[in-house]
Design a protein around this nucleic acid. Structure first.
Length: 815
RNA sequence: GCCGGGGUGGCGGAAUUGGUAGACGCGCCGGAUUCAAAAUCCGGUUUUGGAAACAGAGUGGGGGUUCAAGUCCCCCCCCCGGCACCA
């Protein structure tokens, strides 16, 4: 018997799989299609533990479905455009393309070492023109449909480096390299009209049963549909009215001030004659574009000295400028109701603005809105004719009133904003637009695509190299032929990751973005990736799928039928990351222990949805289990291949082991297929291995029953540790390992001769009864009462109630 | 700040529909093997009291519902993810 030597049989197995093309997916293969997809990695260099975990889950599910006869597609690729390549380019003086391709080579080698069953012939690398040309093509289609448009939007501007910063590059309000205070700056940007699809994206969530409720809830809240009233306040003097949106028109009588954004024309007008105000407006601009920064910063404001006129009372309402009101969201102005909105209330108390209660609780309780805003619905007070009506009634009457007078209208408002797809960066997909001085923005014609990103560039880090490349910028207008300039913005990398899943289905398609194979494989049956993508990536991909559908490229409405969101990989309680310096390199682990051990530990340490705490000792444990399995199977197989089971001829011990085997099969099958809790599946398999190792019966039927158990162990482990099975299986069976199907639990074999019934007195455990299953309530109660320790607690007490849960528990309630 | 998730032995975690809290693994303790160690094998391991039988306590904190609560309800604390230019 050899020792467990994964360094020998793992590469051997991998070579065999590759030679047999075992994971090449074919549309004409037998079985229902099963498309299993893991979120593709950004090629940052080496694989990290999050990848190992993610891709092991995907491989386990793929191999499990394959064992169940499905026609599996499991592809892999690289999300190759992005910011880190630019940073690496600055640091190492290597062009982003070169760095990226080198990383991809390394990562492919590591993925192969881990034994993942991918169809590599379908690999997608998003920075290659043959991929992104279709993204550009699609964009030109959307542009022509009016779904892509350009408008001004806010970016983080570093005034020293003269460059746009990502939110990540802003540290405590300052540019990470220059240290300069970051400013908000408005520049022209390309957008996709995701808001046109807001209702469909929201409604779709209701029927997406294969997604976790948490993700659906997050997306629902993100889309944020609200019904309200848009209404306008006249402004003193000869000025345009202020239009605001409110979901609480029932609180209109409590509006005691207005607030506008720093960029609002009214604010700018007032600042012209007020230097103090001008200074404040300037200050408002040194705030990050990020929402979190906006929400957590100190709320500040200043009076404009201009009044609006309350549309109901005709009284003057002071207009303030506030740093938390943004010009780009809504109308750039809000009506403030400090008595019934938390933020308005805090602002009012800070600046001594009046607070008026206009809603009272329905139950008649007193509230003090001077101290704390009352935000619930209730009954109107201090609201003239509306007094005594419910919030809902006031809403309707207000809406009618404003629509009748033409001063407002009912409106559905969305929190969701259009998708800004412009990036002022080099390492991304060029936006296929030409700006002509006469014709304006013109889409690059189909025959001129792709607009190829030059890869051989000198990268300094100050601005995009594209800005200074005349040969890239200078072009002719496709419409009028005059001199024009090419767009130098590139796409948000979420654009690439919004359709790659469909492109995997169509390798080699040079004439179209997608062909009919896309509809064969999509929607993805199982999508797996980090929780951190719960909103942005997954919402954009859902949106893009609908764009593909409306372009006639796919038939389905949603791209991902089932979603599994895996938790983070932690070390010492922190997210494993380069910046924390607490990474564990999978490469060394694979070399030391083998791929099976790494995969086994990753699946055993925690259920997929939870965060996983990394532990070297745990890896040791996984390795020990595989060594033990290796030894035990070798020992068992020394006496040759066992014969068949004769169920009628089994003794009690043999029946008990067989019951364990089949109960384990049932449990593990459920864990794999429904719960995706591979940790408990592995625990059950370990229990079965423990039982098999203790089972010492060399009779013919004893060996037959044990062999059934060992074979079940190997097949059930195969998705997780696919390598060790290859050399072990032939020791137990004359049949080939790849002809095996997932084992089925036999209901008769699962039956147990003896079960344990729990006996409680007043809910406290007092005894256990061993008996055959299926005892009547009366028998169970009588047996329970006879237990010494039970009788002891019943003595001198009156039995009030006896609860019997058949085959489970007896609870005797006494006083 | 807002939205979502989580908190159970020394550690990772289990308990699936309200029904034995701590499966399985790690670590630790004891034993076997060994000249010795590593490796391996066997046994023990929530905690307090007890030789044991057994009893008391116990799932972030506080309250509640129930014959029965880690699980359901209310309030609070802490940790993690996302917040639209990291991917």
């Amino acid at each position: 018997m050899n020792d467990y030597q994964p360094e020998i049989f793992e590469p051997r197995a991998q070579q065999q799989w590759e030679k047999d093309q075992r994971f090449a997916a074919r549309e004409d293969a037998p079985g229902d299609k099963y498309y299993c997809l893991c979120m593709f990695p950004y090629p940052s260099g080496a694989l990290h533990m999050g990848h190992v975990r993610n891709y092991t889950i995907g491989d386990v599910l793929s191999r499990f479905q394959r064992l169940n006869g499905r026609n599996v597609l499991q592809p892999m690729g690289f999300d190759a455009f992005g910011l880190p390549a630019e940073n690496a380019a600055i640091k190492n003086k290597v062009p982003p393309a070169q760095w990226t391709y080198a990383n991809i080579d390394d990562m492919v080698a590591q993925l192969k070492q881990l034994g993942f069953g991918y169809d590599w012939s379908r690999q997608v690398i998003t920075c290659k023109p043959e991929y992104y040309r279709w993204e550009q093509w699609m964009f030109t289609r959307l542009f022509k449909k009016g779904l892509a448009y350009r408008r001004n939007a806010v970016v983080n501007w570093d005034p020293v480096d003269q460059t746009v910063l990502a939110n990540e590059q802003v540290v405590e309000g300052r540019g990470w390299r220059s240290g300069a205070l970051v400013e908000r700056r408005e520049i022209p940007q390309w957008f996709l009209k995701i808001t046109d699809y807001a209702q469909e994206l929201l409604d779709g969530l209701d029927s997406m049963d294969g997604w976790p409720d948490s993700v659906r809830t997050m997306q629902r809240n993100w889309i944020g549909r609200s019904e309200g009233l848009e209404l306008s306040f006249d402004v003193e003097g000869d000025r345009a009215p202020l239009t605001v949106f409110t979901t609480r028109p029932d609180t209109l009588y409590g509006a005691t001030y207005m607030a506008v954004a720093a960029e609002h024309p009214l604010a700018e007008e007032a600042a012209a004659s007020n230097p103090e105000l001008a200074t404040f407006l300037q200050e408002c601009k040194t705030v990050q574009a990020a929402e979190a920064a906006m929400e957590t910063m100190e709320k500040k404001g200043m009076s404009l000295g201009i009044n609006a006129i309350h549309p109901m009372t005709g009284k003057p309402v002071p207009i303030w400028v506030a740093n938390f009101v943004l010009m780009s969201y809504g109308t750039g102005a809000i009506m403030a109701v400090p008595g019934h909105d938390v933020r308005d209330g805090e602002f009012a108390r800070k600046y001594g603005l009046p607070i008026v209660q206009v809603i009272a609780p329905t139950d008649g309780q007193q509230v003090d809105v001077q101290a704390e805003a009352f935000c619930e619905h209730g009954v109107a007070i201090n609201s003239d004719d509306y007094d005594g009506l419910s919030s809902e009634q006031v809403f309707e009457r207000m809406a009618d009133h404003f629509e009748k007078t033409g001063r407002g209208r009912r409106q559905v408002n969305w929190r969701l904003r259009d998708w800004g797809v412009s990036r002022q960066r080099y390492w991304g997909c060029p936006i296929p637009i030409i700006n002509c001085p006469d014709c304006g923005d013109v889409a690059v014609p189909e025959q001129d695509l792709p607009v190829v990103l030059p890869e051989n560039v000198e990268f300094t880090g100050v601005g995009s190299p594209l800005h200074t490349m005349d040969e890239f910028i200078q072009c002719k207008c496709p419409q009028c032929g005059s001199d024009a300039r090419r767009e130098t913005d590139t796409f948000d990398t979420f654009m690439e990751s919004s359709w790659y899943y469909a492109r995997y289905a169509c390798p080699g398609s040079d004439d179209a973005m997608l062909d009919e194979r896309a509809d064969f494989w999509t929607p993805v049956d199982q999508y797996i990736g980090g929780v951190e993508h719960a909103i942005l990536h997954l919402l954009y991909a859902r949106f893009y799928h609908k764009l593909l559908r409306d372009e006639g490229l796919v038939n389905s409405d949603e791209p991902f039928t089932n979603l599994l969101t895996q938790g983070m990989v932690l070390k010492d309680g922190y997210k494993m990351s380069k910046s924390k310096g607490n990474t564990v390199d999978p490469k060394g682990l694979i070399e030391q222990y083998g791929a099976d051990t790494v995969r086994l530990f990753a699946m055993f340490a925690a259920p997929p949805e939870q965060s996983l705490e990394w532990s070297e000792a745990g890896v040791e444990g996984a390795s020990r289990f595989l060594k033990r399995l290796w030894k035990l199977v070798n020992e068992f197989a020394q006496d040759g291949i066992a014969g068949d089971i004769d169920a009628a001829a089994l003794n009690a011990q043999q029946r008990a082991l067989r019951s364990e085997t089949h109960n384990a099969i049932a449990k593990v099958t459920d864990d794999f297929a429904r719960r995706h809790t591979f940790n408990t599946a592995i625990a059950k398999i370990m229990e079965l291995v423990n039982a098999l190792s203790k089972f010492d019966d060399n009779s013919e039927q004893g060996r037959a029953v044990a062999a059934e158990g060992w074979k079940a162990v190997l097949v059930m482990l195969a998705p997780i540790t696919p390598h060790i099975i290859e050399p072990l299986w032939p020791m137990l069976s004359a049949q080939g390992v790849h002809d095996q199907r997932w084992p089925e639990a036999d209901a008769d074999a699962m039956q147990r001769d003896q079960i344990t019934i729990v006996v409680q007195v007043n809910g406290k455990l007092r005894a256990r009864i061993e008996c055959e299953p299926g005892q009547s309530r009366e028998t169970l109660e009588a047996t329970a009462r006879q237990e010494d320790n039970v009788a002891r607690f019943l003595e001198g007490k009156t039995v009030r109630k006896v609860i019997v849960v058949p085959d489970k528990l007896v609870n005797i309630v006494v006083t």
